[in-house]
C-alpha cells in the first residue's frame, strides 16, 4: 500500500460494512471510498438507508454486532485505523477524530452535568495539562469554560453545572460540538447536526461549525440529507445511494450540473418557490432493500434513463475535473431513454 498523499487526512478505500440479520446480510455500506483533505469540508448526502451514517460509524470503529466491517482500509493521518488495537483506537477517537450525533438528547448523559461531560474528554486527552492536583482541576475547568464560550453558550461558568435537560435543542447541539471540539480534533464528523433544529437555529449551528473550522484549521465531514445545507457549507460533496457512492466532486459542479440520475432526481425533488405552478418531478418508487442485492446498478429500478446495460456491476468513472459518478450512461449525451 502506498503512503497517502500529503493533502489527505482521511482516506477510506473499499469499505464494506454489513449487518447480519435473520433475513440475511444487510449490506449497508458496500465498497465505499472516501477522501477528506486537510482543512476541507466534505458534505455527505443521501436519504435514509443510504449508508452515510454507517460509513462514518465504521471509520470511528463504532460498529457493534450484528454489524461487522468486512473489508476495506481506513487511513487517517498516516495510520491504518483498522489495524489498531481497541486501546490505540480509543486514543484516536475523541482526540483526533470527533463525532457529533444527530440526536443530542440521547447522545448526552442525562445524569452528568455538562461540565463533567466536557471534563471527561479533557481528562482522557490531557496534553498540556498539569499532571495532578488543584492546578489540573482548575486548568480543566478553564478549558471547559473556554469551549462553551467558543460555541457561543452564554454565562458558561454557570452553565457548566447544569444538566443536558436544562438546555434547549440548539444549545444541546452546541454542547455536543463543544465536547467534540474540546480535544481539538483534526477531523470533526457531524452527523445531521441540524436536522432536529429550527431553521434560525440551524443557521447558527452551521455558522458556528464554519467559524471553528476556520479558527482551528480542522477538516469537517457534514452528513446531511439536505442538499441546500451542502451547497452553502461544503467544498466537496459525496452523494450516497443504497450503500454506494453514486457521485462525488466539487459542490458547485455537482449541484450546478449533476451527472448521476439519482443526483438529478434529488435536486429535481426539492420544491422551490420559483417553480410555483409547475410540476416537480419526484423520483418514482423507493429505495431497494439492501438484502440480497443483485450485481447491478442499484438505482436502475427508479431511473428514467435505465437500459439493459444497467443490469451489471457499475463502477465509478470520471465525469469531469475532480469528479466521478457511478453510471454507464455518463457519456451517452443524455439521449438515453431505452
Amino acid at each position: 500500500m502506498t503512503a497517502p498523499l500529503p493533502g489527505y487526512l482521511l482516506e477510506v478505500a473499499g469499505l464494506r460494512t454489513a449487518f447480519h440479520t435473520r433475513a440475511g446480510a444487510v449490506r449497508a455500506v458496500d465498497g465505499v471510498d472516501v477522501i477528506v483533505r486537510r482543512g476541507e469540508c466534505l458534505g455527505v448526502v443521501g436519504e435514509s438507508g443510504s449508508g452515510k451514517s454507517v460509513t462514518f460509524a465504521s471509520v470511528m470503529g463504532l460498529i457493534r454486532p450484528p454489524g461487522q466491517i468486512e473489508a476495506g482500509t481506513v487511513r487517517f493521518d498516516g495510520q491504518d485505523l483498522r489495524t489498531l488495537s481497541p486501546r490505540q483506537m480509543r486514543a484516536i477517537r475523541g482526540r483526533d477524530i470527533a463525532m457529533t450525533m444527530q440526536d443530542a438528547l440521547t447522545a448526552l448523559n442525562p445524569a452528568l452535568t455538562v461540565g463533567e461531560q466536557i471534563s471527561e474528554v479533557l481528562e482522557a486527552h490531557d496534553e498540556g495539562l498539569p499532571r495532578r492536583g488543584p492546578a489540573r482541576r482548575r486548568a480543566i475547568t478553564d478549558r471547559a469554560v473556554e469551549m462553551l464560550r467558543l460555541v457561543g453558550i452564554p454565562s458558561p461558568t454557570e452553565r457548566l453545572r447544569q444538566y443536558p435537560h436544562e438546555f434547549s435543542g440548539g444549545m444541546r447541539q452546541r454542547m455536543m460540538i463543544a465536547i467534540a471540539l474540546s480535544s481539538r480534533p483534526k477531523l470533526l464528523i457531524a452527523d445531521e447536526p441540524t436536522t432536529a433544529l429550527d431553521v434560525t437555529i440551524q443557521a447558527q449551528v452551521l455558522e458556528l461549525i464554519a467559524d471553528i473550522r476556520a479558527k482551528l484549521g480542522m477538516s469537517v465531514v457534514l452528513i446531511t440529507h439536505d442538499l441546500a445545507v451542502v451547497a452553502e457549507h461544503c467544498d466537496r460533496v459525496m452523494v450516497m445511494y443504497a450503500g454506494e457512492v453514486v457521485e462525488e466532486g466539487p459542490t458547485q459542479a455537482v449541484i450546478g450540473d449533476p451527472r448521476h440520475p439519482y443526483t438529478k432526481g434529488l435536486l429535481a425533488s426539492i420544491p422551490r418557490p420559483a417553480l410555483r405552478g409547475e410540476k416537480i418531478h419526484p423520483i418514482t418508487g423507493q429505495v431497494p432493500e439492501l438484502i440480497n442485492l443483485p450485481e447491478q446498478c442499484r438505482f436502475h429500478s427508479r431511473c428514467p434513463e435505465a437500459g439493459l446495460g444497467c443490469l451489471a456491476r457499475i463502477h465509478m468513472q470520471s465525469s469531469g475535473p475532480g469528479r466521478k459518478a457511478r453510471c454507464i450512461r455518463l457519456h451517452d449525451g443524455g439521449e438515453a431513454h431505452g
Binding site: E47, S48, S269, I270, P271, I280, P282, I283, T284
Partner: peptide
C-alpha cells in the same frame, strides 16, 4: 419523509 418521497406526496 425523505426528499424524494416528500416530492411524491407534495405532487
Amino acid at each position: 419523509l425523505d426528499v424524494s418521497i416528500q416530492a411524491q406526496i407534495i405532487e
